[in-house]
Design a protein around this nucleic acid. Structure first.
Length: 205
DNA sequence: CACCGGATTGGCT
DNA sequence: GCCAATCCGGTGT
């Protein structure tokens, strides 16, 4: 059911980011099952990536999770409110992680709508990393969890593999001070999917 | 212990 | 398109 650790353990984080498109992200929080197809991902590759919390392998209480074994969940709070969900995708000790930015909702629609307070626009349910986490019930309780155990959160096979020609590559979102790293085309989306988030806004500081 | 900035969002112009 | 909300975590005193 849940993807095994070797899926997350590969050398190439960009390939894994693309492989995750089309996979199913599942949660079972407070006995409520919800899921959706991953339609947008972003790679964060320490130590050389200035946009990564673990740039230059910086180790703090928060980034400690980023150095965990592959298939570990890294959840942190952004702007004091939003929970952002990442997956560790390198051998233990290497801080590579992939931010899941959007899903196409599948199971548990009613629970997700309730958690999101019934957004007026249909596609606003899960088309952004903060919105997605809220809909799925993800919080700091999921930080450090082993996704291969399929307990409160895991990744499963979803739709057939997305062809390379159906993947859009572009710069990452919200890069305000990552300098040259802001240009790296490390965001991936399924072409034509209606549930992806906003276009990239790159600040060329 | 104080200060500052942020891998976002939603509401208002 | 612009901007405030909101508060945690990192940093320096």
């Amino acid at each position: 059911m849940a993807l095994e650790r070797n899926f997350f353990a590969g050398e190439n984080i960009l390939e894994i980011s693309k492989s995750l498109l089309g996979m199913k992200l599942c949660t079972n929080i407070d006995g409520v099952f919800t899921s959706g197809i991953i339609v947008e991902t972003e790679a964060y590759k320490a130590p050389e990536d200035k946009a990564s919390h673990a740039y230059q392998n910086k180790l703090t209480p928060r980034t400690k999770t980023m150095f965990s074994k592959p298939g570990t969940a890294y959840v942190y709070i952004c702007y004091g409110y939003h929970h952002l969900f990442n997956i560790i995708t390198a051998p233990e000790g290497i801080a590579h992680c992939i931010l899941i930015r959007a899903i196409e909702p599948l199971d548990g629609m009613e629970a997700m709508l309730e958690r999101r307070n019934y957004p007026k626009v249909r596609y606003n349910l899960t088309n952004g990393p903060g919105k997605m986490s809220k809909a799925l019930g993800i919080s700091k309780g999921q930080n450090g969890i082993d996704l291969t155990l399929a307990e409160s959160i895991w990744i499963a096979e979803g739709i057939p593999q997305i062809r390379k020609s159906h993947i859009i590559e572009g710069p990452r979102v919200g890069m305000t001070s990552a300098e040259e790293c802001a240009h790296w085309p490390w965001r991936f989306r399924i072409k034509g999917n209606k549930w992806t988030s906003k276009p990239a806004v790159v600040n060329y500081k």
